[in-house]
Design a protein around this nucleic acid. Sequence first.
DNA 1: GTCTATAAGGAGATAGAC
DNA 2: GTCTATCTCCTTATAGAC
Lengths: 215, 215
Amino acid sequence: MSMRQVTPAPGKASGTPKKADVTRVQILLAAAQLFSQKGYAETTLRQVAEKVSLKPASVYYHFESKEQILEEVLNAGIVYIKTSVETALAGVPADAAFRDRFNAAVRAHLRVMLDHRDEAGTYIRVYSNLPPIAKFRSRKARQEYTNIWRALLEDAQARGDIAQDVDLGLFLPFILGAMNRAAEWYTPKRGTIPQLADLITRLVCDGAAPRRAAL
Amino acid sequence: MSMRQVTPAPGKASGTPKKADVTRVQILLAAAQLFSQKGYAETTLRQVAEKVSLKPASVYYHFESKEQILEEVLNAGIVYIKTSVETALAGVPADAAFRDRFNAAVRAHLRVMLDHRDEAGTYIRVYSNLPPIAKFRSRKARQEYTNIWRALLEDAQARGDIAQDVDLGLFLPFILGAMNRAAEWYTPKRGTIPQLADLITRLVCDGAAPRRAAL
DNA sequence: GTCTATAAGGAGATAGAC
DNA sequence: GTCTATCTCCTTATAGAC
């Protein structure tokens, strides 16, 4: 699943591939990369234009404003992440161990965010320093995504895989935030994405202390 | 310990309180707040000036450039955090349980970052979207701080409080990043800072699963 | 659809009076 | 130390030719 399929144009059924909405998508991709690398305010439309070999003015044929580009980039990013995690969860039996379902979700989230950094990572990286309007507009999609995780964790707590006295109101944002922050520091040099996913799963399920079971 | 004592002026022993380095510090504090709230690029010198009831030009009597203000804000922030965590660790016996030492450090880190958001939180929040020069300049202080945590965790691993097969190269940045990300989502509505610190400590030491000991 | 040219505004920073 | 006034540059965005 690529961002390409996610943003053909607002309100357009995927019938004709259309001749040059291609440019539109190229702009979105370039913008996503730049926003992700340097932040929204620090990125100029000239840089976006140059990256797709256009003159700045031409960008305005495809988009009304810089902010509209941002909005679409954000939405595409979160839809992309959401779909990936949903797909990953669907690939694990619903009655599988919590550990396995959780690990699959974590791995999917990390993979999208760290592997396809430019495409979806933008959402995570740029979100904090945004004009409040943009934050508000993407709020709904963001919440829908969070709900996937909430359901996963609430279910685990109901089944006794997570202790009753763990406050999900703190745990949920903590664990999502912890994963998202990885976009800031992760490099393949530190380890693979599955390794990181395993570490997180281990922390959540067992902690980092040595197993004291077999004693 | 306040940021005031940290940034009297570069290379100035704390002898005379000096008549109006006060303004200098006020500018730093105002800048810290604004950078933290809106990001570096989105903050204008005019806004900083207005916040301390100065005209924009007057700021340049105290600082050479906007970037220099940023640099000092960042350094002050990290020195502040570092000192806080060191003090907290010094307050716990060196032979205390890892759990207690870790919890004290987490709590101190979170308190500075979340309670004194404007002073030290800037460092965390702004750092990602920075001109590379600024990142580089604050690198040394950042590493010195990280080393406190590395020592704490390496020590724990040596004593067997953290399992041998936990990769600190992943674990260290993960846990620091997770805490830092809390600046993005934490509000007192979700819980107290000690509660969050306890949650993190629990995850690290035991995991979130129900205790299976007493069975 | 993309271009050239340019408008309109705001940014960081400086000069020099007070 | 702080002010007024201003320079210069670069931004987003528009107008209209091709």
